[in-house]
């Protein structure tokens, strides 16, 4: 009976749960070295900003079709990836479940952890055939969670998701940074990440949803703090990334300055929230100031996107400009 536990793979919740998971898997396997903010930005994850109209906690993970967004994240880093996901109520679920158990075990055998929807995202870092279990890290607890093979994928949401990684090809640093800027522009211009659902907005539109919910006072108090924390965290990541990237693209200094100003406005986390019922909620007194910060942040990000655009057009973008002769969708 085989047993594998990957040592040296440690997930910590500091960013979006997918970014934290990706960082843990890739650094654990030696496929990425560097700080988390760099991975977050180069994978496009840092730029993602999605908001539910009532600021539900799901805002932070409802940023699009995961298969597409997370594959894009791995592609931009030059890393091979395979994802699988579905609805647990589908009659074929058990078959997919058994298959996923197999390929995740084979990934672990090769020393690579797998990303798994708990929810939120966590990392499968081991298995034990004798007990028929996976060991999963959620990033909060030092102790692993235990998931039976038979319960793989079953959680309180109606869907399951798993992703594994493989080999790596080298992509030039400059190309990776350019692609990150372009992914940022794509997200900024996409009003709704999960169409036809219009209750969740992303990019520029997400600001109006956030501001509207705060103005109306009709929002989920836990979700509001969670969205705000994720927003603050990701904008700080972008700031650090742009400070680095402006050495490669001097034009980015202006954008970096925008994010420095933005991060500066959001300092002192205790200013925005108060403790209540064992958790945190947005302080009522700070909401008008928060709305002001968001309005200003939108303007700063709009200016930064202008900078990204001006840099992007200076270089060919074959991925987005090439229309194959058979159209955008290949026959397969």
């Amino acid at each position: 009976m085989a047993e594998v536990i990957l040592r040296g793979l440690e997930m910590k919740r500091e960013s979006k749960s997918f970014t934290d998971s990706l960082y843990a898997v890739l650094t654990g396997a030696g496929l990425f070295s560097g700080p988390k903010y760099r991975l977050s930005a180069l994978s496009g994850m840092a730029f993602i900003f999605s908001v539910h109209e009532r600021l539900l906690p799901l805002s932070v993970t409802a940023y699009g079709e995961w298969g597409t967004v997370h594959k894009r994240a791995a592609d931009s880093l030059g890393i091979f990836t395979v994802t699988d996901a579905g609805r647990t109520r589908h009659p074929t679920f058990k078959k997919y479940q058994q298959d996923a158990v197999k390929w995740i075990k084979s990934s672990l055998d090769r020393g690579l952890g797998a990303v798994y929807w708990l929810p939120e995202f966590g990392v499968i870092h081991g298995y034990d055939d004798a007990d028929r279990i996976f060991y999963v890290q959620d990033g909060y607890s030092a102790e692993s969670k235990i998931v039976l093979y038979d319960n793989f994928g079953i959680n309180f949401t109606p869907f399951w998701y798993a992703q594994m990684f493989g080999g790596k090809v080298d992509i030039g640093e400059k190309d990776m940074v350019l692609e990150a800027l372009r992914m940022a522009l794509d997200d900024w211009e996409t009003p709704h990440p999960v169409p036809p659902n219009r209750s969740i907005a992303s990019g520029r539109k997400a600001y109006s949803y956030f501001i509207h919910a705060l103005e109306q006072g009709d929002f989920d108090s836990f979700g509001a703090v969670y969205v705000w924390d994720a927003f603050r965290g990701s904008r700080t990541e972008i700031m650090y990334f742009l400070q680095e990237a402006s050495l490669m693209f001097p034009g980015l200094q202006e954008a970096a300055a925008c994010y420095e100003q933005l991060a500066g406005m959001m300092e002192q986390p205790e200013r925005w929230t108060v403790s209540a019922n064992g958790g945190r909620t947005l302080s009522q007194e700070s909401i008008p100031a928060l709305i002001g910060v968001l309005k200003e942040a939108e303007k700063l990000e709009e200016r930064a996107m202008g900078v990204f655009r001006s840099i992007s057009v200076q270089y060919p973008d074959l991925k987005r400009s090439t229309v194959p002769r058979w159209g955008l969708h290949t026959a397969r």
Partner: peptide
């Protein structure tokens, strides 16, 4: 119809 499968105990 189509409820998710029941979770199994340890």
């Amino acid at each position: 119809k189509g409820r998710p499968p029941a979770i199994q105990p340890f």
